[in-house]
Design a protein around this nucleic acid. Structure first.
Length: 275
DNA sequence: ACCAGCTCCTGCTTGC
DNA sequence: TGCAAGCAGGAGCTGG
């Protein structure tokens, strides 16, 4: 998926097109993504005004003038296009929001790992998808103490522990690799050994890499694009992700970026400066 | 309780 | 060129 920076970029792109505006009509072109859509989604949202689009971790929360919150997740291949009705509808345009001003917003998701469900209007964080996740890494709730508690006693590799949204909610395969490289921590290291100074070192690197990626409009690989169609450009700043065989970018390091498999996913790192 | 592995799905890239 | 295998940004579930 889009990881946290991509979701935040999408949120910022959707906001001017949707916030304060009414949905004239919603086309629901299939019954489900990962989970079934709310049964009356199209009828429910017709005529509703979007008050705010918020982000928690990799989730988007659409708040309306009435009714439940629409809780969205873009899975691995989801994207939003902001366009008009006269542009051709791409394949896999599962949801099409027709706004009152003629703008059309399409949710496109070939792999359909995305989610669109309702959450309680007054307590969206009580939703089962949100109530068990860890702190958002850009919030004040995330710090070295909180992270070390989350990693305590865990023998799984730090890479896997950071991908676990219960430790910290928002990292994915790319930014975990980037943050660990910046912090000089091997992805293979046991999670519980990332404590004390090592953990304190990691936390700001996680924040920095996410903030820099948001500034860059996210990373554009195959599917991801900002909602306005622009490509993000943080992929040009990857130090290790998808750079197998390249020299390590750490100035004093002579190492070569290596790719290994962890829990079935690719991990990129420098064996020389990540310990 | 924890963790590795599998699974959902489509499409692009790679290698023969 | 054609085809099949492998791989992809996520995360819930299963079984050890």
């Amino acid at each position: 998926m889009p990881e946290l920076p991509e979701v935040e970029t999408v949120r910022r792109g959707l906001t001017p097109a949707m916030q304060g505006r009414r949905i004239k009509a919603l086309a629901v072109n299939r019954p489900n993504l990962r989970y079934p859509f709310p049964p009356k989604l199209a009828a429910d949202l017709k005529g509703r005004r979007i008050e705010q689009i918020a982000r928690v971790s990799k989730y988007l929360l659409f708040h309306f003038d009435k009714g439940p919150v629409l809780l969205g997740h873009m899975g691995m291949s989801g994207r939003f296009d902001i366009t008009t009705h006269d542009t051709p509808l791409p394949p896999h345009s599962h949801l099409v929001f027709e706004m009152e001003d003629g703008t059309e917003i399409r949710y496109i998701d070939p792999r359909r790992f995305g989610i669109m469900v309702y959450a309680d209007r007054d307590a969206p964080m009580d939703h089962k998808l949100l109530c068990a996740i860890g702190p958002d890494p850009l919030s004040n709730a995330f710090n070295a103490d909180v992270l070390s508690v989350a990693l305590k006693g865990r023998k799984t590799p730090i890479k896997s522990a950071l991908l676990d949204q219960k430790s910290v909610a928002g990292l994915g395969n790319i930014y975990v690799a980037e943050a660990l490289h910046r912090a000089g921590i091997s992805p293979k290291r046991s999670a519980h050994t990332v404590a004390g100074k090592r953990c304190a070192r990691l936390v700001p690197h996680i924040r920095d890499v996410l903030n820099e990626a948001i500034e860059a409009g996210g990373s554009s690989l195959n599917d991801y694009r900002q909602a306005d169609g622009e490509l993000g450009y943080f992929q040009h700043n990857f130090r290790v992700y998808d750079r197998e065989g390249s020299p390590c970018p750490t100035p004093t390091c002579q190492g070569t970026i290596k790719r290994i498999q962890q829990a079935g996913r690719s991990t990129f790192y420098c064996p020389s400066c990540q310990r």
